[in-house]
Amino acid sequence: MLVKLSEIQDHLSNFTVGIAGAGGLGSNCAIALARSGVGTLIICDFDKVEIGNLSRQYYFSDQIGMYKTAALKDNIARINSDMRVIIYQKKLEPSDIPLVFSSCDIIVEAFDHAEMKEMLIESVQTGLPGKPIIVGSGLAGWGNNELIRSRKVDETLYVCGDESTEVGDLPPMAPRVGIVANMQANLAIEILMKLKHI
């Protein structure tokens, strides 16, 4: 079977991916989806770019002090100006989630704190039943390539990461954060490629 990249990009252009959090996972995942031709991203984050973020997040030194959502939108436009990027610059509450992400075909969970991950998963699974969510969990430190995996819980819940290392015990570093972010993007594409567009 011969598949051209342009055909894949044409197909992906019909879909919308939500990204909750624009840190190490969210920014790198967004860039991979932009390069792959996904049509629309909905990105939520409340933070500004800090110098310490540059060790792993997809931002540049001249963007320090900017809101991450705005900086990421600029960076995406420099790569794929055809991508539609909708940004929400706020800290999400459980009640916001069904509203913000209802038009998404898939949601990528890219929050920092485990409590926020839990809140998002619960809100999506109860407020947006049937909507697939791809969780990132376990990406701290370095090495141990073989422990990073992608796991399908069911049709609506997937997890990428090692599910054991935690930021706090170990620092987040570019390679493992990037691996998990790109696994999330890779899985989002796999799911979208099976969807028919209207």
Binding site: G23, G24, L25, A114, K117, E163, S164, T165, V167
Partner: peptide
């Protein structure tokens, strides 16, 4: 029963 572990970091 399915369990998924949530680790901080993102």
């Amino acid at each position: 029963v399915q369990m998924l572990y949530l680790m901080s970091g993102g």
